[in-house]
Measured scan of single mutants.
Amino acid sequence: KELVLALYDYQEKSPREVTMKKGDILTLLNSTNKDWWKVEVNGRQGAVPAAYVKKL
């Protein structure tokens, strides 16, 4: 499985998103959308802005 690093804090704004903190390591589930990537963090799945994460 592919991992990404959170470059910034992000507070979810809808139920389809997830909150992450700078430095979090997230499991990347889907990166086909260039703006929003689906990730899993702390057992929750949701979208985060692609510009806020970097593939490891």
Rank of each mutant, 00 (worst) to 15 (best):
Q45A: 12
K34W: 07
K13N: 11
K22W: 03
V18D: 01
Y10V: 01
K38N: 13
P49N: 04
V4K: 01
V41Q: 10
L5D: 00
G46Q: 03
E12W: 06
V41N: 13
E40F: 05
S31W: 09
E40N: 04
N33Q: 10
V48H: 01
Y8E: 11
V18F: 15
K54V: 14
Y8F: 13
K34R: 11
P15S: 12
Q45L: 09
T19S: 15
V39A: 02
D35I: 13
P15M: 10
Y8D: 08
P49C: 06
E17V: 05
K21L: 08
L28G: 01
G43N: 07
S14H: 10
E17C: 07
L28I: 06
L26E: 01
E17Q: 10
N33E: 11
N30C: 14
V53Q: 01
Q45Y: 09
V48Y: 00
W37G: 00
Y10C: 00
N42V: 05
E2I: 14
S31A: 12
L28T: 00
L5F: 10
W36T: 04
W36G: 00
W37V: 09
K34N: 11
W37S: 03
L26K: 00
S31P: 07
N33A: 09
K55N: 07
A50Y: 02
N30G: 08
A51E: 13
Y52F: 13
R16S: 14
Q45H: 08
N42T: 05
K21P: 00
L3S: 08
N30Y: 07
P15I: 11
S14D: 10
V48T: 02
W36E: 05
N33K: 08
A6Q: 00
A6C: 13
Q11G: 08
V4T: 02
S31R: 09
V4S: 03
P49V: 02
L5K: 07
Y10Q: 01
T27M: 12
K34V: 11
V18T: 05
Q45N: 07
L7W: 04
R44E: 06
E2S: 11
V4G: 14
E2K: 10
L28R: 00
K38D: 15
E17H: 07
A6Y: 01
L7H: 02
K34Q: 11
K1S: 11
T32R: 10
T32S: 14
V48D: 02
K22L: 05
